[in-house]
Amino acid sequence: MTTTELIIQLLITGLANGLIIALIALGYTMVYGIIELINFAHGDVMMLGCFLALTIVGLCGGEQLSPWIALPLLFLTVPFFTAGLNWSVEKLAYKPIREAPKLTALVSAIGVSFVFINIGMFWGGLPMDVFGGGGSAASAKSFPDLFGWSNLLGEQSAVLLTPRDVMVAAVTIPLMIGLTFFINRTRMGTAMRAVAQNPTAAKLMGIDVDRVIGLTFIIGGALAGVASVITALYTGSIHFQMGYRNGMDAFTAAVLGGIGNLPGAVLGALLIGLVRAVMEGYVPNGGQWSNTVVFALLILVLVFRPNGILGSRVREKV
């Protein structure tokens, strides 16, 4: 493998992982932008989306399922489910305490996270073949391989590009462009930016703040749902504790890029993905230090730019 090939390979893996983190990070950062709440349950919403995806695949025939049926099916149902879940969380756990001190909502979010983790564990114990018959609820579950293992660059190529890597980019990039368009160009997007800037003033201008907040949670949840389908297909296994790890990466990405800032979250996520790829895929014994490097980078950025990489340049949140 030449140096160029090595760099391309690290870029492919790093960007694919980074894009997945970015999808989850967008959900964190949007919610923070609107109500200044760090929604710790967000990663677990994504985890439950993964369990739904596996359940659906299991009900529809497992490994035999054609990807051309599975993909539309999953991308329609799972984001719908996670969006509804995220919306209900807002209505049940955050809205009643919206006027309370910020810390109250944070504790509420952590509580919701624990509830979801336990639901995930229970879900993994259902007596289905895809869950190993339900014998060990807490173990990781293999997600059927719907794509095969071909190298799109040909079997002789040293660089490995799988259909999975392409799928990650093909789904996430248009979604992010669409989201940017929605926030910047539509009436509802304008309303969201208005609420983010000043909820009271937005209310005085006749904006239905509750509806805007609800919509933010729906969009964030739907993005988490897309992320769950992609994660399940990309990594090939799911686990009831995966929400914590993915959520932590995404949250770090959001803070790194400047929390509340959409392009910042994507930038932060890609940075984390690439740092991890280099540490784990190239630096000798780097795998055990990748977390250290990521968090050291976070501290370094926060020391010199307390609002994150893009946080201070763009004043408007959402």
Binding site: L10, T13, G14, A16, N17, T231, Y234, T235, G236, Q241, M242, R245, N246, D249, R276, A277, V278, M279, E280, G281, P284, N285, G287, Q288, S290, N291
Partner: peptide, 12 residues
């Protein structure tokens, strides 16, 4: 190599 047992995936 020592690896992170809780990592989401080991593609890198």
């Amino acid at each position: 190599e020592g690896i992170d047992g809780k990592s989401g995936n080991y593609k890198s």
